[in-house]
Structures are given as structure tokens and as C-alpha cells.
Design a protein around this nucleic acid. Structure first.
Lengths: 265, 265
DNA sequence: TATTGTGAAGGCATTCACAGCT
DNA sequence: AGCTGTGAATGCCTTCACAATA
């Protein structure tokens, strides 16, 4: 990388790799923990361990943001927290809506990790009229008739879909039409969206299937001595690099599986 | 990087790339949908669209499994469903336990996508005595005192952790000690596990933060015409390739955020 | 001395483009 | 004629290893 040699690179190096972006929240969480324990500085080695990656990767990641460390010393925790927060856009307020208030939607509404990172749950939305008005996590559920109104009034640009698969695409269409440009999708469906809209998907069943694949491979030689599992301590790589592009056409209805949310089409 | 890998040099010529493994469940879901509509065959182009990837990638992925297609025709849907299921290890029964029956745990327990893919919820476990016996999704919740017993009696090798962050490592240790070798972790913590144990992580807050990063970048030129969003239709790449490695040492307690599950340490 | 920041190398993953079959 | 299967090309990400520097 061209050493801008400016102490603080005013030139925002536009090209932060996706893989790096996906790890920034990891670093931020580790740093927050250190910050709460009033640790002033941390080395790349220590921070990497806390975040579950290796130190070379961490240093390379940080090099894309700028030169925020001090050679021979390490990184200033508070300063790094600020820089990463800013880079991720967490210094501003992000109103989000959660659509589909079943068990999963309720879990999300109750999740404390949002508020502490600049995300504010502007509204909970469900299609079931019986739920309207009921408070979940202290926030009254509103009927989906008001979806567009809610989006516009609150300037919501991020939407979370926690509906059954069958309703997901319709909800998505309405969110996008109303102005949402980023969607976190928990429904097991491929969403179709216009260009310029980001979709990220979290699929519970897929993660389990990947585990099953690896589990199957272990069956052979690996007769673990269950009695005494050595409390080893290895470097963990919890990276998550998954691009999310525009939508693919999918005319068909959702498959058999549904998330247990309460929002029929 | 690959998971807590037992480095196996040449023993197994079964070298399916992680990125491919992560997409197999995607193909499987699309194929299941086609199967239910009694579609007999499908081309790589059609299937790729339904799964949200491009066809070259799909063909390359399938080439690692073998030559299951017919040139000039396409793939036999039923045959592919079987082959992929077998490759993923879904033709056998996988008893799983879910620990931490809060909203999220309940959502997981109710999730229909498990049963239909060879996963059987052997037990729901929670530390709250008040929950013991209560049925969730038709399955009675059992107290965590019985965790080891449940794991052994049911031959459980896959565990799902949906507890608050503070309890996750302890639960993880007990699961591993009892014989679990694959863990799906929803708690926002880096888990430390012995070599040979796979951990995959799902982190709700991280996904949102990545969306926020991209959302922030849009703010510049993109003054969306909210009135008429063009219902474009582009190819979407919803791949998910995220390795999960062995555990890193982390002495500290979990950060501020907790999943809203009901399982104090 | 201790630790960062980063070119360079190496390894994967994706995409291209076409030979090979049906 | 149409579609798969795959070498080759390309690009991205990770890891190495060390010069730069507080």
C-alpha cells in the first residue's frame, strides 16, 4: 500500500476489502470489552486473540483504515474503538424496523447488542391484527398496513425480515418501495431486490447443514476420548465474508420450511 | 481458513472446498422447491438463478461432487437432491440439543427447516428451573443439570447455544466434555474449544453492522427517487462462506450485549 | 527492544471460455 | 443444438517475514 505518510490519512482509502469489513465488528466487540475493563492499550497479538483471528490478518485489516497504532507499543483502545465505529458508520443513528414479530422477531427486538451500536428499533411490524398494540421488548407492535408510513416518518433505511418464507418477498418489495436500501433477511428465501439494495441473509438451517457435513467427516478415525477433552487453546478464525448483491428472479413460492414468525402473507 | 482441521494430506481425495460446502445447502433448498413442483430436470442456469448464484460457479461446485449432470439436458432433480443430501450427511439422523430457551431458543425449536433435513431436536435445555417441564414447540424443556445425561443418552454430537453471552463458554465446555463435537453459537462471544471441535457463529449484530457500513457509503450521490424504485431483476449472489475455526483463549466475560435467552450462568 | 505496517508470496475462489458429450 | 465439465486466467484474501520506528 502506498504510504500516504500522513499521520492521519485524510484521504479515505476507498477500497476496504469486504473480508476486512466483515471483521471490523469482531474487533469492535473485543475492543469494547477491553474498554470496559479500562485497558488503555493493546497489541495486535492480544487483540487478535480476543477477536479470534491471527495477528497478521488483524494488522493488515487495520492498515486499510490507516496507521492507528504505535510501533513498539500497540493500539490505543479508545481511539481504535472510535475509528472503527466511525468507519462502520456506527457513530450515527440507524433506525431499523423489524417485520414479523414471532419468536425470532421478538428475540431480535430484545437483543441488546443493537442499541449499544447505534441501531434503534424504530418499530416492530406484524401482519397479525391481534398483535397490534401489544408491547414486545417495550415497543408496541404495529400493523403492517402502516409499514410505508412508518418507514417514511422515521427515515428508516435498514429493514429486518423475520417473517415466514412465504411472506418475505412481498414484505421486501414493500420495504424497498418505501425507501429501505439495506435488508437483513432471516427468512429462508432468495430475495429479489433492485440494484443498489443490499441484502444479507442469515439462515439457521444452512449453518447446521455445514456443521453436519464436517461432523460426518469426523466419524472415521476420530474416536475421541470423551473422558478427558484437552482444554486446548487454538487460534480461531471467525471471519464472515459474504457478498450480497442484487436480487435474482425467483417466481416460485418458498419451500417447505418456515420461520416460526407470525406474519402470514 | 478451514475449521479445526485435522490436517489430512492426501488420505482423502474428497477435497471439497469450504466455499462449495457452504453453498450446497443453498442448492439443496432450490432443488427441494423444484422437486415439490415435480420438475424432473433443471439446467445449471435455471438452478443457479433459483439459488441466487451464477451458473459457472454452480457447475464448478457440482464438479467437485462428481458428474451428476447430462450434457445437453441438465440435472435430474431427484438424483441431485439425493447426492447433495448424502454429501452433506443429511441422509442420516442428527440429534441436536438447543441450550438456552429464550425467544431465540424457542424460535429455533419451532423452526421447521430442521426436521425436514435430518435434524432432530433431541432436547431443549435451560438453566431456569421454572421452565423445566414446560413444553416449547411440543418438546418439554429440561433443566441444565441433566445436560450431560441427555447428550450421552441421545448420542448428540451437535449442540446449539442460544444462551446469553455470559453463559456461553460454560455451556460450551459442558457440551464438549459430554461429547458434542459441533457447535452452532448464537451468543456474541468467541468460544474456546479443543482441537477437533467445529464452531460456527451466527451474530445478529455483526450482520447489521456490515449493512450499516455499506449503507453509509450510499449516502453520497445516491439520492434515491423513493417515489418509483425500478423493479429491476439482477443476479444475486447469496453465498455464505465463513470458516469457523478452533477457539481462542478469552478470559474476559462477555461484553455488554446479551441474547435475550433465559439462561443465567 | 517491542511491535507496527506492508511489500511479496502463496493459496483459494471465481470467472472465462471452450472442448466434450448427449 | 444444447448443456455440462473443466483447464486456464484472473482476482481476492491470507500469510510470511522484515524494514521501519517509537
Amino acid at each position: 500500500m502506498a504510504t500516504g505518510r500522513t499521520h492521519r490519512p485524510a484521504t479515505r482509502s476507498r477500497g476496504i476489502p469486504e473480508a476486512t469489513v466483515a471483521r471490523l465488528p469482531l474487533y469492535l466487540r473485543a475492543l469494547t470489552g477491553l474498554s470496559e475493563r479500562s485497558v488503555p492499550t493493546v497489541s495486535s497479538e492480544e487483540l487478535a486473540t480476543a477477536a479470534g483471528v491471527n495477528s497478521a490478518k488483524l494488522r493488515k485489516d487495520f492498515s486499510y483504515l490507516g496507521s492507528y497504532g504505535t510501533r513498539g507499543v500497540g493500539y490505543d483502545v479508545e481511539y481504535l474503538v472510535y475509528q472503527i465505529s466511525r468507519e462502520l458508520g456506527l457513530t450515527q443513528d440507524w433506525p431499523v424496523v423489524i417485520v414479523g414479530i414471532g419468536n425470532l422477531g421478538a428475540a431480535l427486538a430484545n437483543y441488546g447488542g443493537f442499541a449499544s451500536r447505534g441501531f434503534r428499533v424504530a418499530a416492530l411490524i406484524d401482519a397479525d391484527p391481534a398483535m397490534a398494540g401489544k408491547p414486545v421488548a417495550g415497543i408496541p407492535v404495529r400493523h403492517s398496513d402502516q409499514l410505508e408510513e412508518i418507514i417514511r416518518d422515521n427515515g428508516v433505511s435498514i429493514g429486518v425480515i423475520a417473517t415466514p418464507a412465504g411472506a418475505a418477498q412481498q414484505v421486501c418489495d414493500r420495504l424497498v418501495a418505501a425507501g429501505v436500501t439495506s435488508i437483513l433477511n432471516f427468512a429462508p428465501t432468495v430475495l429479489s431486490v433492485p440494484d443498489g439494495v443490499d441484502v444479507r441473509k442469515v439462515d439457521l438451517s444452512i449453518e447446521l447443514q455445514i456443521l453436519a457435513f464436517h461432523e460426518q467427516r469426523k466419524a472415521g478415525e476420530d474416536v475421541r476420548d470423551v473422558a478427558a477433552p484437552p482444554p486446548t487453546t487454538v487460534a480461531q478464525d471467525g471471519a464472515s465474508s459474504r457478498p450480497a448483491g442484487a436480487g435474482a428472479r425467483t417466481d416460485r413460492e418458498g419451500p417447505d420450511d418456515e420461520l416460526p414468525a407470525v406474519m402470514p402473507a
